[in-house]
Structures are given as C-alpha cells and as structure tokens.
C-alpha cells in the first residue's frame, strides 16, 4: 500500500529521498571532520532510512551483463526441447530475497525453452521454497502439467550422502516424488537414472549443504554439467570451482538481475513479468554507496584525529 502510494508520487518522492540522503551524508561528513563520535543508533537509523527510502522510491538502475552469469544463460539457451534440467533449491527464507529471483528466472527460461525441470532440495525448509518458485513460474506458464513439464522430488535427510547416492542412482534416494508418486510414472523422469543424465544441473544455495557439496559429491564423480546461483556472501568462496567444475555462476542479487536482463533481452515477453532482483539492485546499490561513504568518513575522522594528536604531542 505504502509502496504504491510512494511510487505513485514518482519523481517527487525520489527527489525528496535523494535530497534527504545527501543532507544526512553531509551531516555525517561534518561530524567526522569535527572529530565527533556518531552514535551507533544514528548509523542504524541512517541505514534503515536509506534502504527503505530507496525501496519506496522504486529506484531502478541499469545492469551490466558478465560472462560468468552469461555462461549459465547460454547453456540453458543451447539445450533442446524436452531436455531435462535438475534445479536444486538449497536455501531457506533468509536467503530467498537473493536466491528466489534467480530460481524463478531459471525456471521461466527453462519452461520457455520447453525443457523439463526436476526440483529438489537438500534443506528441510527448501520444500516451501520450491512451492513458491513453481507458483511464481506458473504465473507466466499457467498450462504447465505436473509430471510432464516438471516434477518436485522434495527433500531427503542426509546432506552429502544424498548427493553421493543420486550421483550414481537417483531413484535409490528419491524413489517417489514429494506426494509419493513413483518417479517411473512421471514422464519428466523417463530415462533419468543418475545426475549425469540431466543435461544441466543448476544448484542454487546459500550455505551447507549447497553448491560446494554439489561440486564435490556429484559433479566430480559423475561428470555432470553444472551451473550455480549463490548468495553474495558465499560467491567468493566458490570461484575456485569456476569454470572447470561449474561452467557459470550467478552471485547474489547482481547475478540474478543480470540473468533477468538477459531473459528480457532474448524473450521480450518477460518484460511484463516482475523483475525482483533488478528491483532489489537499486536499494542495494544505495546501501553499498552509503557503506562506502561511511568507510571514507570514518577514515577521514581517523586521520584528522591522528593529525591532531601528533600536533598536540
């Protein structure tokens, strides 16, 4: 409601936001120059106002595509109609704002290409995430048929053990789907014996078990082709596996927004679909700028204090 009202105000709110933001930063700079301590609560307040203001103003910034994300997109783009893709959503609601947009974009891309998706998760809370992603994808593809176009095998306990077994025999761990239907009766799973039988695996995760475990226990032993989507905090730890073990990676909201951009560029029909990650990137950028300025101000304050101390000594 508030979002609709403020976005309705459009440029007026946007200008009000930027002026307030600049004034606040000016005050923080002044405090730093004069060597006065800024209370933690003030910083919290600024961060809260910055992010919520940017969300309410609906700031959308351009996105630049990178090779590491394009590799995932191009791989799916290169698959043929009817090919199977395994999509593992290994995250919980805390990671959903970053990871759900990429899961949705990958699902949309696959369904547009008429690929068949098998959803699974290694996290107990991941089942709810799968339901959400399928519901989001179905907005653009209301005629999808369960069992023919996609299936959901859900969650199994055992973390790495689950992966090690499905790498050689998928049905030993997942004999049925999430509703107890035998995988043999689902056309999506026809001819799928192990993970290597999927043309592409996309593991989207924010912790352990997640992408690293997929690489170690599935990609290495089975030679399956994999791409990934990681939370921004864990993306740097996954670079050692790129491009050998995973041919591409979407890192955080930025990676997801790049994927959304590519999807809209190649398939203009998705321009009317909500670009969640692109919407997040505006407030995230403003928050990053705010963080960087805080670091600059803190260092100005530190060096001035050092100089004053040196002069008085």
């Amino acid at each position: 409601m508030l979002l609709a009202v403020t976005q309705g105000l459009g440029p007026v709110f946007s200008w009000f936001f930027w002026i307030t933001f600049a004034a606040g930063l000016g005050w923080l700079l002044w405090m730093s120059i004069t060597g006065r301590e800024v209370e933690r609560r003030i910083i919290f307040l600024f961060m809260g106002l910055t992010v919520s203001g940017a969300v309410l103003a609906g700031i959308i910034l351009p996105v630049q595509e990178t090779t590491v994300v394009r590799n995932v997109f191009d791989t799916i783009e290169g698959l043929s109609e009817g090919d199977r893709v395994l999509l593992s959503l290994d995250y919980d609601p805390s990671g959903a704002p970053e990871l759900e947009p990429m899961a949705k974009a990958v699902s949309q891309h696959c369904f547009e290409k008429k690929l068949k998706i098998c959803y699974m998760t290694l996290w107990g809370t991941g089942g709810a995430m799968i339901t959400d992603v399928i519901a989001l994808a179905k907005v653009d593809f209301p005629d999808l048929v369960y069992g023919d176009d996609y299936c959901n095998v859900g969650y199994r306990a055992g973390n790495e053990a689950v992966l090690r077994v499905i790498a050689s025999d998928f049905r030993k761990t997942f004999p049925t789907d999430v509703s107890g239907t035998s995988l043999d009766s689902l056309s999506v799973m026809n001819g799928i014996l192990n993970c290597a039988d999927f043309k592409y695996i996309v593991a989207i995760g924010s912790g352990r078990p997640g992408i690293k475990e997929w690489v170690e226990y599935v990609v290495e032993p089975s030679g399956a082709l994999m791409g990934s989507g990681a939370a921004a905090v864990s993306a740097p730890q996954l670079y050692p596996y790129y491009p050998q073990q995973m041919n591409g990676m979407m890192g955080g909201s930025k990676g997801a927004s790049e994927y959304e951009k590519m999807l809209r560029r190649v398939y203009p029909k998705f321009k009317s679909s909500r670009a969640q990650a692109t919407e997040i990137m505006g407030p995230q950028t403003v928050a990053h700028v705010f963080l960087m300025l805080l670091i600059v101000f803190a260092n100005i304050s530190y060096f001035l204090a050092k100089k004053r101390k040196g002069a008085s000594a």
Binding site: P93, S94, F290, L294
Partner: peptide, 30 residues
C-alpha cells in the same frame, strides 16, 4: 511458515545490514 518463519528469518538476515554499517564506520580504518 510463510506468515511467521519466512518474515522472521528474512528480518534476522536483514539485521546484518545494520551491523555491517556500524562495523564499517567503527572498525574499517587504514
């Protein structure tokens, strides 16, 4: 799950932004 667990988890994770901002200002010095 959607009404309780999802917003609580997301809120806890979002708090990181505030602590990172405070830590950046206080600890990130050359």
């Amino acid at each position: 799950f959607d009404a309780v667990k999802a917003p609580l988890s997301a809120s806890m994770y979002s708090l990181l932004a505030f602590f990172i901002a405070s830590a950046s200002y206080r600890a990130f010095r050359a």
